[in-house]
Computed example of a mutant assay.
Amino acid sequence: MTTMTIRNAARRWAASLVVLAALAAPLPAFAAPSDLPSARPQDVGVDPMRLVQLSQWLRDEKLDVRSLLVVKDDKLVFERYSGGLDRDYNYELYSITKGVTAILAGMLVDEGRLRLDAKVGELVAKLRPDLAEKFTDKQDLEVRHILTMSSGLHYDFKSKDDPIYYAAPDRLQLAAEAQPKIPPGTTFEYTDINPILTAAVLGAAAGMPIQVYAEQKLFEPLGMKNWAWGRADQKGLVSTGWGLRLRPVDMAKIGLLVLHEGKWQGRQLVSAGWVRQMTSPGVVPYFGDYWWINDIVTSEPEYDTMGFKGQFIVVLPKRDTVVVMTSLLPIEGGLRDAGNVQIFREIVNGHILPALAAGSGPGDPSAAAALAHELALAQASNPPPGAAPDPFETDTPRK
């Protein structure tokens, strides 16, 4: 064997050792985080008996609250399920999908792939050149307008089962055909045409379907499990206004990411500046970029993202707290005053905020047993649906 051959063999052997060492080395902490750590409520200054009373009230009122979580000081202190459900089920989040989408938009802005003043028509044309001429009457429409629900577009929604939600083979074409009603950026109007355009815009900016980008940039770093982003149309486009399914504990991680201004376990996933913008007033004082502002709590800083029939992620920065709920509750009453929103306001303002105000102290020594007993009763309960379940079983929790 020549000297050169021996040297080459040594190099290959050394390189293989480096590869094996890399494979054996532990992954960075952010690569596979576990679910949230837990603590007794009283250990972080939360009154457990107030939480017991809250759960009893939900049972007495027979409210179909599938999950209700409270995270304080980054610790899960209250985790309530009903109907035999547990932590591993995911839920259709409806418009909470928009709140997650806003985070993804911020990531693309941070990466320099997306500008808020970019023209929506130009970005859509990158993905669908066949629709370019549909935007000749929407030349002033910018990304910022569809994120703040101020596009000024009109779409004639059907009163029941509009095709953009389920049956349309090409949602983006329907959205592209929406007519300008008023100049963009002037008036807030909550319409689900906007998140269809957003799905196309973000996918074009990312160079991949938005759900693939979300998996790489958000879901995997947060250690999410059993997530799904479905209900794509026949062209393969998901909506960024609905269709995302998460476990409640993973919803809480979204809330914590926002609470900590884009940082997760020491890693800045999205810039603090974007989180501040996203949760600051846009065209109206109560809505930013797909996030609501002081819509649940008005007595202190609060921002939230909410979904049809009673899905919520609420961030309370003053309390270092995140509240999460999934439910099937009444929808009558309008966008901001539907029955499910009013019930959730009572849950947060009438029960959770008083529990958070308890302060530190030893508390009632029997509280832990009382809370465990009540949570077992809640899980065994089976309240009737407060709204009609979706005929396509969208509302069914899944593992």
Rank of each mutant, 00 (worst) to 15 (best):
K72A: 05
E332G: 12
G361K: 04
A178L: 04
E346A: 11
A25I: 09
Q268K: 12
E61M: 12
A206L: 00
T5N: 13
V314W: 03
A232S: 09
L58A: 11
V44W: 01
V348K: 03
E300C: 08
P397H: 05
N294H: 07
N226E: 10
G83M: 01
W274T: 00
I164Q: 08
L153W: 09
R276G: 12
S360Y: 14
R398L: 04
A338E: 02
L202R: 00
Y94N: 10
N90L: 01
A380H: 05
R171D: 02
A369P: 07
S151H: 02
Q311L: 09
V120W: 02
I103R: 04
T240Q: 03
Y165S: 03
D117R: 13
R398V: 04
M325G: 07
A39H: 00
Y286L: 11
K263V: 15
L371A: 03
T240N: 07
F392Y: 15
A387P: 01
K62L: 15
P169S: 07
H351W: 09
A10Q: 14
A167K: 14
M107A: 11
E261D: 12
I343N: 00
L335I: 10
G386E: 03
K309Q: 11
D74N: 10
Y303T: 00
K158Q: 11
A9N: 15
L377Q: 09
E346L: 03
S360V: 06
G262E: 07
K62G: 14
E61T: 12
A168K: 04
V322A: 00
G339I: 12
A200S: 00
N340L: 06
V19P: 03
L202H: 03
L85R: 08
M306Y: 05
N8P: 09
R231L: 15
P248H: 04
P385H: 06
A118R: 01
V212W: 14
H154C: 05
K158H: 12
Q277V: 09
L127T: 05
V100L: 05
D86T: 08
V100Q: 04
G185A: 04
H260V: 07
V201H: 04
L131M: 03
D74Q: 01
D161N: 12
Y89Q: 14
T187D: 09
R245W: 11
I96S: 00
